[in-house]
């Protein structure tokens, strides 16, 4: 009989052990949640994405885990909740942030724990200067972290000329995409795009630079978005092709006598 009780205890221990060993950790989740703070708060209101307070009670756990790991695939599959959220939040798709399943579980444990406590009071935002923001965007004033200026990868209707880069998205309407001052400021300090995170996660821009950018993007938000950068395609590529033609003219002039020394006297053509 005694051995029977011990067997039961051993069985219970075996069932509980994996739960202890592999249970989600809110502490680890808080660290992993840094990947989310550009767009989400827990109890401080929506930014580019929804406020996640009590989300663990509102949605199915398995759905949440998959959504955190591969939001792009769920959107592509046309998941009804995901599609609804996309529509609700200015059509900004949640990017895959390279979160593992274990991290996703930790994040959810952190959100659950943080939902019960009052959020820390937000720091007042710094006031920026749109002119300095433009200089930083164009690179006329270098970023303090030594990173390339925005114009290297991003277009915005305000800058004119041949425009900005095309590696990243057009930033003309960034201000409204991120829901105004607060959302944009946080997003700039914690870039949500995986490509940008490669550079800026280790060396973020400074808070005052984020404030200057926010002021500048508030201004560009008034401008329309140019779908195609015609200036670049006509003037930029056109100049390139013209340059190539000039090179060929130059080559034919430099080597104009190349057949006259030997070939034509010897071969006759």
């Amino acid at each position: 009989m005694i051995s029977g009780i011990w067997r039961l205890k051993a069985l219970a221990l075996l069932l509980i052990l994996p739960q202890i060993a592999f249970s989600a950790s809110p502490e680890a989740g808080e660290k992993a949640f840094q990947k989310c703070i550009a767009c989400h708060t827990i109890g401080s209101g929506p930014l580019a994405g929804p406020d996640l307070k009590d989300v663990t009670t509102k949605r199915d756990n398995a759905w949440l885990i998959r959504w955190i790991i591969e939001p792009d695939k769920m959107l592509a599959e046309g998941d009804s909740i995901a599609t609804e959220l996309l529509k609700e939040f200015n059509n900004i798709p949640m990017p895959p942030m390279g979160v593992t399943e274990a991290e996703a579980k930790d994040i959810l444990a952190y959100i659950k724990a943080a939902s019960t406590s009052e959020p820390a009071p937000a720091k007042p935002l710094m006031k920026g200067d749109a002119e300095i923001g433009k200089k930083l965007f164009l690179g006329r004033q270098a970023l303090s972290n030594g990173a390339p200026a925005c114009v290297g990868c991003h277009q915005n209707t305000d800058i004119g000329g041949l425009g900005g880069g095309a590696l990243g998205v057009d930033l003309t309407k960034l201000y409204s995409r991120y829901g105004g001052d607060k959302g944009l400021n946080i997003a700039l300090l914690n870039p949500p795009s995986p490509i940008m995170a490669g550079i800026f996660s280790k060396q973020p821009i400074s808070e005052i630079e984020a404030a200057h950018f926010t002021a500048y993007f508030k201004k560009t938000n008034e401008l329309p978005v140019e779908e195609v950068n015609t200036e670049f395609f006509i003037k930029g590529i056109g100049t390139g092709i013209l340059g190539l033609i000039l090179v060929y003219i130059l080559i034919s002039l430099i080597w104009i006598k190349r057949l006259k020394g030997v070939r034509i006297p010897m071969v006759g053509k």
Partner: peptide, 14 residues
């Protein structure tokens, strides 16, 4: 160079 300009800048970053 055409699709993902301006590479001379982002080359330094990536």
């Amino acid at each position: 160079a055409i699709s993902y300009r301006w590479g001379s800048s982002w080359f330094a970053g990536f």
